[in-house]
Design a binder for these strands. Structure first.
Lengths: 143, 143
DNA sequence: GAAGATATAACGAAGTTCGGACTATTCAAC
DNA sequence: GTTGAATAGTCCGAACTTCGTTATATCTTC
């Protein structure tokens, strides 16, 4: 199988670049004091992994545990996150979202969802499946 | 034309999420003291728009001019960027990359290029064109 | 040539990241 | 069971980034 052509690489690059920039600009429009990028990532992770520990999150996101500690501090202070010592291992802390945190995470997910919706809307129904199949192949290499 | 299905939205979302995370982790592996995200963006913009002014860059990237000033400071200090007062309007400054800056920008571009190459390599030659056509349609809505 | 607009830089406050030191537990081995 | 190493998490402080306010120099326009 031959290599991708130069034109293809350039086209993909400019598309990505444009997309990323637009996405960033759109993101900046939100009115509340925005959570730090890291904090949002933490929130979404904990939403999916209730009861996990800070170390899990840090490893998943690829940041030092001290950095993650700052993030959980901020989130706890804003009332988005609860930290509870657990019985099984009293060194450990179990992270869970508060109601407000869950709401924020949900809103975040909704925002993404709307964006995906918009993106897919520009394709025909047939194309949508094909596009997703291809991007899945690219990301997971499971073709 | 009907709406995208829930499954499609979820599939696209997880693919993106995985991709973004992997990309971030890979990026963190680089050994030099990394430039700030903004600084990299500035470098790439100036690479494409030699002689442009700070205000242009700030507007393009959607950051306050003062923030951009910090960025150009850092880049100039590291010897990546030259700032020269221009004759035509002596308030204005023309930004150009130094040789080192151009090299850095080039390396950055190379990194992206390799990533795109890897991505497209996972598709068959036929799929590549179709994928790019679709993503172009999505991003530019010019279908 | 005075008033106002424009391009940029200097300064400083607020916030983020992360290395190093520290505490509290648990585990392992004797 | 006590000692020593490993583990989970936090606190502190230095370095850095962002961005609002303010200052400076230079056009522009009437």
């Amino acid at each position: 199988m031959s290599d991708p052509t130069e034109d293809q690489l350039v086209a993909l690059g400019t598309a990505f670049e444009t997309f990323a920039r637009r996405y960033k600009l759109a993101d900046a429009l939100r009115s509340e004091r925005p959570l730090a990028e890291l904090d949002k990532a933490v929130l979404l992770y904990v939403a999916e992994h209730a009861g996990c520990g800070p170390t899990d999150v840090a490893r998943f996101l690829g940041v030092p545990t001290t950095t993650l500690s700052s993030a959980t501090d901020r989130l706890a202070k804003r009332g988005f996150l609860k930290r509870e010592r657990i019985e099984a291992d009293r060194r450990a802390v179990a992270l869970t979202l508060s109601e407000a945190g869950a709401a924020y995470a949900q809103a975040q997910v909704e925002t993404y969802r709307r964006m995906y919706m918009l993106m897919l809307s520009r394709l025909s129904p047939d194309e949508r499946d094909r596009f997703i199949a291809m991007i899945t192949k690219i990301v997971y290499n499971d073709g």
